[in-house]
Amino acid sequence: MALKNEKNKIIREKKSFHLINIQDTNSLTISPQLSTNFQASSLQFFLGIDSITNSAGVQGGCLDPMQGMYWTWLSGYINLKLEGHYPSASTSFQYHLGGYRAPFNTLQTVEIEIPDAKYLEIPIDIEKLFTQAEDSTPDHIMSPGKEAMQLSKLTATMFPSSVK
């Protein structure tokens, strides 16, 4: 996670990994270890885990495989899990998006314009993922590859380009 100011100066949080779990309200509030003395104009973060972290050995905290965001049959982090049912149909969907090896590196960059504030609320619009996805997108994507790559590109659009 990083902050940028008007002069394009960037400060980055060290060892910056945050896991957001919609079922765990505590995880929905993030307090990054960043200087409060910085007139930020935008917030930047990766959606997913970079390839260097992916290539390393087992790690702890929110990177611990016990969090369920690590594939077991294949080495690598799952960047985003989204599972559910369509209300109109009896079909379910299950998306475990990840993969860090070229040409299917699913890591996305998000940049959001922000006001200079101590507390920010960032809405995530999951519907955007579904309205933009092609009709041919399968209901189940659970391994790295072309399909995971295509859907991952849309995940960044769930975040707003600016917040007030």
């Binding site: 495989p65 077991t72 294949l74 080495s75």
Partner: peptide, 16 residues
């Protein structure tokens, strides 16, 4: 070669 690091190897048979 699905597993790239010995630390993460045991996960595969445990979860399979």
């Amino acid at each position: 070669g699905a597993v790239h690091h010995l630390d993460l190897q045991a996960l595969a048979p445990i979860a399979h």
